[in-house]
Design a protein around this nucleic acid. Structure first.
Length: 681
DNA sequence: TGGGTCACGGTTTTT
DNA sequence: CCGTGACCCA
């Protein structure tokens, strides 16, 4: 038992050994966070706690599988695996068992963001789909039902969005679809309305752990509270300084106020950093100290002084990328493995000039992020076919693929079929396969009729084959549909064909490993899976700062260190979150860190003169008095909001020790207020 | 039905 | 500048 804990430092051990009651583990970058919580899980099990009584929640599948592997390798006799999965996977499992209590069937289909947008577009074409989609997410994540949304909407635009939300939700229920937010929202709903269920679920999961707690949103917090109904054994791990998902609903208050929300919370800080040199940590620490909303932590290096952080200054983006390419070449020539090198940027648009520079220098690289495997059009087509075959009610998938490959069926024909099917209360597929041929041929044009007949026929043959043998079904699937052939004929088709092959390969693998798995099972399995886009070690990586979270590189470059790009300014800019992003970027580096800044950059069709990023000065890397206004983010004339005094206008900004003082005019009343007590409006 | 052209707008991303 | 989506015509 002690062997398990031997590997930990005193703070890590203190955190891992805490069993009962709430605990917040504040784990700084590179402080051995995963090691600590996987050890804690292994420790709990080594004490004889039933794995079935534990629940460990993460945000990504990657984190879940990594933790599972590490925890299980520490226990001698893994009895059966403890539940360790993403929040959404937990919701999915839960709903499979309990959604019937909400009057819905458990053969629901999980739709992704892309599907969601398509449905929204069907309902409304006026408002931007992306906006509506994110507002619906906001509603769901704040536990607001369509009726409430409609009742509280004031502006005409929001009235419209709330109405779309209602129609959207009705559409989901009618077609038995569930979106990502529903996986959590419906789970919460069930736990809220059914006291017995809540009690039994909470009794079962007596030891709950949450990874990356700084990224939780309101809904996730509420869900956790329900899961902790009959106990308070909640162990959350995170780093408030690495909260970089505020824009998608993560609420940093969840971690900042955790000790106030749960009584008798134990707080453990992990501040020993096992990743970066002193020079790198010094800069990162200085930078993050400029933030006010934080619990406060200073990383301590265990790796020695190291090389100073280097600054590259160039006139434009071409010079910048050439400099970086040259530096990378030197590293590689001196024997550094390419996988140890990465370049980060704040926005994806900056990858272009960088890629050009790397290409000029003949350096192979891989771009991490971008379009994910399961979101590629060709893969979603194949999945849609599988969904129709598994579930003949899935009109949504049906419409996606009815004309892919091209069958000469356009909007007009689809409208006709939809209308007729609607009148008979049948799904599209049912309607087309059950309606007598004579009747169908009257409804449709000759060409469309013949084409649809063939289509339905192919699907029926596939369905019959599936009943006999999944393997046989898979063998004939593509040739029956003609997806590969379709994509092969397109100009950029080669890669898409390869992707389809990979997908079919995945499917076959899954069947071989799990001969009993049904098509339904397979579809469920992949609905929450993003490709584990593993980084191939033999190339240098380039990616956004967001994509780099959780990774580390021996030699790291960050480009675009200019005001406007990093920090990325614009409306709704949260300077503290930008600073946390800067902190995340810097703390990815192990041995050398190079920050690059240019005088001008070509962006959105024009060249712009730029100033050096304030983060360079804040991190103590560049001299130069920064104007007070810039470092606070407040300037004369800004509107700010105070808890008690309400909205006021800034008249003057001045320094007050480590904080800043604002002279504010609150409706005629002038007051001096410390800047951390107001927020921008 | 589907290919072609033009206007517009443009952070960060996981499930 | 470059990709997407709406709209128009064959």
């Amino acid at each position: 038992m002690d062997k398990i804990l031997d590997q930990l430092n005193p703070e890590q051990r203190e955190a891992a050994c805490h069993i009962d009651g709430p605990i917040l583990i504040l784990a700084g970058a590179g402080s051995g966070k995963t090691k600590t919580i996987t050890t804690r899980l292994a420790y709990l099990l080594s004490l004889g706690i039933d794995p079935a009584n534990t629940l460990t929640l993460t945000f990504t599948n990657k984190a879940a599988s990594e933790m599972r592997e590490r925890a299980l390798s520490m226990i001698d006799n893994p009895v059966y695996p403890p539940l360790l999965c993403t929040f959404h996977k937990f919701g999915l499992l839960f709903l499979k068992f309990h959604i019937e209590k909400l009057g819905r069937k458990n053969d629901f289909v999980v739709i992704d963001t892309d599907d969601k947008k398509r449905i929204i577009k069907q309902i409304d074409k006026e408002l931007p789909t992306a906006l509506v989609a994110s507002e619906i997410s906001r509603y769901k994540n704040s536990l607001i039902h369509p009726a409430q949304a409609i009742a509280q909407a004031e502006q005409p635009q929001y009235k419209k969005i709330a109405a779309i939300y209602q129609t959207y939700q009705e559409y989901l229920v009618e077609n038995n679809l569930v979106d990502f937010d529903d996986l959590l929202m419906l789970t919460h709903e069930l736990l809220e309305m059914d006291e017995d269920l809540r009690k039994s679920v909470s009794d079962r999961y007596r030891y709950i752990m949450v990874d990356e707690y700084q990224d939780t949103n309101e809904l996730q917090l509420q869900l956790l509270k329900k899961l902790c109904d009959s106990h308070t054994n909640l162990c959350v791990v995170g780093d408030d300084d690495q909260s970089i998902y505020g824009w998608r609903g993560a609420n940093i208050k969840n971690i900042l106020e955790f000790p106030n929300m749960f009584d008798d919370t134990k707080v453990v800080k992990l501040e020993h950093n096992y990743r970066s040199t002193e020079e790198i940590l010094k800069a990162a620490n200085l930078l993050i100290q400029h933030n006010r909303s934080r619990l406060g932590k200073t990383l301590i290096s265990t790796k020695g002084k190291g090389k100073p952080v280097e600054i590259f200054q160039s006139s434009d983006e071409n010079e910048e990328s050439d400099k970086i390419a040259r530096a990378i070449k030197q590293l590689i020539d001196s024997g550094v493995a390419a996988g140890e090198i990465a370049v980060l940027y704040r926005i994806n648009a900056l990858s272009r000039s960088l890629e050009e520079g790397l290409n000029r220098a003949g350096i192979a690289y891989q771009l991490v992020g971008g379009v994910r495997f399961y979101e590629r059009a060709e893969i979603k087509d194949a999945i849609s076919y599988l969904r129709i075959i598994a579930n003949s009610h899935d009109d949504f998938s049906f419409k996606r693929v009815i004309n892919r490959p091209k069958r000469g069926i356009g909007k007009a024909t689809i409208d006709k079929i939809e209308k007729a099917a609607y009148e008979k209360h049948l799904s599209l597929y049912q309607f087309l396969s059950e309606t007598p041929k004579t009747e169908l041929s009257k409804l449709l044009s000759k060409k469309a009729y013949a084409s649809i007949n063939r289509f339905i026929n192919d699907l029926e043959i596939l369905q019959e084959t599936l009943e006999r043998s999944t393997m046989e079904f898979m063998e004939m699937f593509d040739s029956a549909i003609g997806l590969k052939a379709h994509y092969a004929s397109l100009p950029d088709g080669m890669e898409r064909v390869l992707n389809l092959d990979e997908f079919y390969g995945l499917f076959r693998d899954m069947i071989k490993k799990n001969p009993d798995m049904s098509l339904d099972g397979f579809l469920n399995e992949i609905s929450l899976q993003s490709d584990q886009d593993q980084i191939k070690g033999e190339q240098i990586s380039i990616m956004s700062v967001h994509a780099s979270k959780g990774l580390e590189f021996t030699h790291l470059f960050v480009i675009g260190m200019e005001e406007e790009f990093f920090p990325l300014l614009g409306d709704g800019c949260d300077m503290e979150e930008e600073r946390r992003l800067g902190y995340v970027a810097m703390t990815r580096a192990k041995e050398t860190l190079t920050l690059s800044t240019v005088q001008s950059r070509f962006h959105k069709g024009r060249r712009k003169q730029l100033e050096k990023s304030r983060f360079l000065t804040e991190a103590g890397l560049l001299q130069g008095a920064l104007s007070i206004e810039k470092s606070t983010g407040y300037k004369k004339g800004d509107l700010v909001k105070h808890k008690l005094f309400g909205i006021g206008r800034v008249l003057e900004v001045s320094r007050a020790g480590r904080d800043y003082k604002l002279k504010i005019n609150f409706g005629g009343n002038r007051r001096d207020i410390l800047s951390s007590f107001v927020e921008k409006v």
